[in-house]
Simulated scan of single mutants.
Amino acid sequence: MIESSNPYASPYTVAAQPVDARSAFIRKTYAHLGGAIAVFALLEYFFLQSQAMLNLVAPMMGNWWLVLIVFMGVSWIASKWATSSTSLGMQYAGLALYVVAEAIIFIPILYLAVGMTGSTVVIGQAGIITVALFLGITAVAFITKKDFSFLNSFLMIGGFIALGLIFASMIFGFNLGIIFSAAMAIFASVAILRDTSNIIHHYGTNQYVAASLGLFASVALLFWYVLQILLSLSGRD
């Protein structure tokens, strides 16, 4: 029987495995995360060059409530597929579905960013800030090795509040503003901390695809709101 210093570990989690197994799981998880981000970036590049794609997503600007509902449904399906214990192919299908869905939902804000600033510089700045925050949060999780699963309740309640405010803003036509974007950037940062902690403590060694999807979702959320903040600041100049 393998002993673990982690009191939360079960015999089936990565935390209960030997060092080489844990290292292999972490490498696979972050390799898949890097691949997902690379595919996302390539899709955005090609989507923004395609007038047909821009015409396709243009109606999204006036129907964000419907887009969010569809995206939530797609996210649920993708998560279910990615956590499949019977098929590795299904896990990859879930990750691929989620990456494509994120790429599509990001088109309007990226197009707006280019239109407002006349270049892709602000998108690059948002990317750099997101990566810097992600690396810092990841370092905290790995250095402290604490289990941050207690944040699940905060994230669940915060997520429902955020969705409520978003839908209310769409129904009543008010702008949530930069303070909401900053709060959501903090929310996404907490989610990254929780997700990274789960990689260390709670996933099984064959769940690296699901782990990478969870991290990708949180990183994408952080990128979205960092970009929103930068666009709000640039609009004040």
Rank of each mutant, 00 (worst) to 15 (best):
T205K: 12
S169G: 07
G73E: 02
F174P: 08
V14T: 04
A113K: 09
A210K: 08
S197V: 10
S181D: 15
M184S: 13
K80W: 10
G73T: 05
L165S: 10
I2F: 15
S23A: 14
A182D: 02
A182R: 06
V122D: 04
R27P: 01
L135R: 03
I104A: 10
V57E: 07
D195C: 01
M170N: 13
G214N: 02
I179Q: 05
P18T: 00
I171V: 15
L48P: 05
N175G: 00
A217K: 11
G118Q: 00
F134S: 13
V131N: 02
G35R: 11
L135K: 04
F25S: 08
I192L: 13
T120K: 10
L233G: 12
V140Y: 13
K146I: 11
A126M: 09
V121P: 05
A16V: 10
Y12H: 14
V57A: 06
A182I: 15
M53W: 12
I157F: 05
V14R: 09
I77N: 05
A139N: 03
Q125Y: 12
I229A: 08
N198W: 06
Y98Q: 13
P18N: 04
P7Y: 06
Y203K: 06
A16C: 11
A31R: 09
L68S: 08
S234Q: 15
K146A: 12
L133G: 06
G158Q: 01
S4L: 10
I186D: 01
L43I: 06
G89P: 07
A141I: 03
L42N: 06
L135H: 04
T144Y: 09
W81S: 11
A101W: 01
S10I: 08
S218N: 12
I128N: 09
L112V: 14
L221C: 09
F167Q: 02
L88Y: 15
A24W: 00
T130Q: 05
K28V: 05
S149A: 08
A96S: 14
V114R: 13
P59Y: 01
S5P: 02
A52D: 05
V114H: 08
L56P: 06
I166D: 07
T138K: 05
S5K: 15
A9L: 02
F106E: 09
A21V: 15
Q91K: 11
L33W: 11
V219D: 06
L163Q: 09
S10Y: 08
V14K: 03
A38I: 07
L68V: 06
I192H: 03
Q49C: 05
